[in-house]
Amino acid sequence: MEINNLAINLEEIEKRYENPLDFFRGKKLCLFKACLEKYFPGVRFGIHDFLEELGLEVTICQNQSCCSGTFFQRNLITRAQFAAINERNINEINHQADILLVSCNGCYNSLLRGRDFLKDDIVRKKTQDILNEVKEKMGSEKYHGQYDILENPKLRIIHDLDFFYLIREELVNTLKFSLKGIKIAVHYGCHYLNLDRDKDTNTYLKDKTKLEELIRLFGGVPIDYQERESCCGWGASQIVIHPDDALKVTYKKLKSAENVNACFILMPCPTCLYTLSKPEFRERIHKIFNDELEIPTIHLNELIAILRGCEEEQCITLRRKSPRFDQIYAHITEE
């Protein structure tokens, strides 16, 4: 049985299509529901609204569950159970779409890792046994193969950052505002930056400088800082298990970006965004390190919505934005 990891090969699309957007035209797109989008609805809105403007067919899969990475990383479910949850999601989405876009590094990693585990014969057998039991319990399938491990399904997965980067020339034409030369620090997040599946082949994820390239394209200045590649501090829920220790990592990251006078930190993951921006974490940092950090943070999808001229309330979640972000929003959107 051939188990592929379903990730879209960016290089292949760039080679085959003069305008990479043509690859997506006529295909059914689906947005993966990341749990933390609840706190940052602008992350979902940012890509959904953009895809609709491009005239692409986009849906949400109502039967999709959380990717369950949180539980797997704390050993609360086995590899086979994790793979079964993942395969159930992939099967449901494959049934209704051709391309799955993912806004969260954690979900993206889970989707690829779940498939990777199935390459192990023992895990694959255990996973299929679990799915067979589900099938028996549920009585019947709603569609053929609902509870089967998929062999080479049509569905392909792409991270939102890779999607925006791939169609960057088309994207820049839709922007109403520019970044007007402001300095921006980038944070990729571990589960995007450290994916080693393309370590040797340099295939589908390619270089990890896409955020910097997009910033330049949007008229901003990417600014390097010492902790560019470090973790946000979430670290498989370390921030809830060992908060004061994990916040040292968060503090170092934020401080390092402030030290180079970055206006804000741009990232492609709502989990990192949650960690780097949660007011309670900032307050705790203030208490521990006696240092009040004000640097704002934003998800790429939210920034693109602002640059496209969408309503402020739709782009950034009012609950989470800091006063300094108001200034940035005003600066960018000033006519």
Binding site: C35, Q62, C66, I77
Partner: peptide, 27 residues
């Protein structure tokens, strides 16, 4: 999902039953 009152509402009971079945005997 891992959060209360998810953005898109809860999964249907049937789908929740599937998740519970998958997680049988898990921690």
């Amino acid at each position: 999902t891992v959060l209360e009152d998810p953005l898109d509402g809860s999964l249907s009971k049937e789908r929740i039953d599937e998740l519970n079945e998958i997680c049988n005997f898990a921690r």
